[in-house]
Amino acid sequence: MSGTLNNASLKTGRSFDLGKMNLQQLWVAYLTYPTILLYFALIIVSFGIAARYFAGWGPTLVAVVAVMAVYPLAWYLLHRYVLHGHLLYKNRWTASLWKRIHFDHHQDPHLLDVLFGAPVTTLPTIIAITGPIGYLIGGVGAAATAIGTGITITCIYEFFHCIQHLNYKPRAGWIQRMKARHVLHHFHDEDGNFGITSFVIDRMFGSYYVDAKARPRSPTVFNLGYDLQQAALYPWVMRCTGAPPRDRPDGARPEGKRA
């Protein structure tokens, strides 16, 4: 994909295919993406409130460190037990939510506009987790610091998440390893490697694996268990999609039929 086409996509709102983009094109897309711009604005607002109701350097630093410690665990639990759970798609009222927040991403892992979570779901979650932590540490000022820290970490997560689906080999070895583990989550077995920038929690919960030899390939890696049989029982996601769930992304070939 040329830079010209990507710039045109920014103007027209067409989706970006990370599998056809390079790092420079990603920076342009990321720094101009509406969700990211909203996050940047909210970070400024959060730290402005934190300055206005400054809790002191001690509580402020404790709030930052606390959020940095809690965030990976919160993300892991949400990713594994909510986003990869089946409860949301089995309810007609939450099926479209589940489709948007994670099913679409696994159906087409390279599509940028479903890689980012929708602010209407991500922001309340971030605030609900980080705000009380900060408030207990140092009142309104520390709560604002905690929320701003949570949104900042989300921006970092989202950028590295893009890197992991980008047509680009990182130079740094630690980013290469991070990307390799996440690629396994999307293309080999979705029931593992739930982390984005760190897999410490995966190691703690026994869901970490290093290569495709470690476990068999999952037949539900692209549909998260929402296959044709489940779609017949719980059709709401399929109705929202307008098509049956796929067991591989568009353009992928069945095993044994690759050139």
Score class of each variant (00 low, 15 high):
P119R: 11
H86F: 10
I129H: 00
Q107M: 14
Y89M: 10
A214G: 07
K179V: 15
L136K: 12
R203I: 12
H185E: 06
D113K: 12
H102W: 03
F116R: 07
T145K: 05
P109G: 06
I175K: 03
H102Y: 12
M204S: 07
G85V: 01
H110I: 06
R171C: 03
F103W: 15
R181W: 02
I133W: 07
V140L: 15
G141R: 02
W93N: 09
G173W: 14
R92A: 14
H161V: 01
F194K: 04
D113N: 15
T121N: 01
V114K: 11
Y135N: 01
S198E: 10
D202L: 12
I129C: 10
T125I: 13
H188P: 03
R181H: 15
V221T: 14
P170M: 07
L115Y: 13
V120G: 04
L166I: 04
S218E: 10
Q176D: 00
D191M: 06
I156K: 00
L97Y: 11
L111G: 00
V221K: 12
M204K: 07
R92M: 09
I101D: 01
D191Y: 06
Y157W: 04
G138H: 01
P132M: 04
H86V: 05
D211I: 05
H86I: 02
P124H: 08
T149C: 12
W98Y: 10
P216Y: 08
Q107E: 11
H165Q: 12
T94I: 07
F159K: 09
L184T: 03
T152I: 03
I126A: 00
A180S: 13
L184G: 01
L224R: 01
P109I: 09
P124E: 10
I196F: 01
M178K: 02
I129S: 05
G192Q: 02
G192K: 02
R171Y: 13
C162N: 08
T149S: 08
T197M: 15
P170V: 11
M204W: 15
C155M: 15
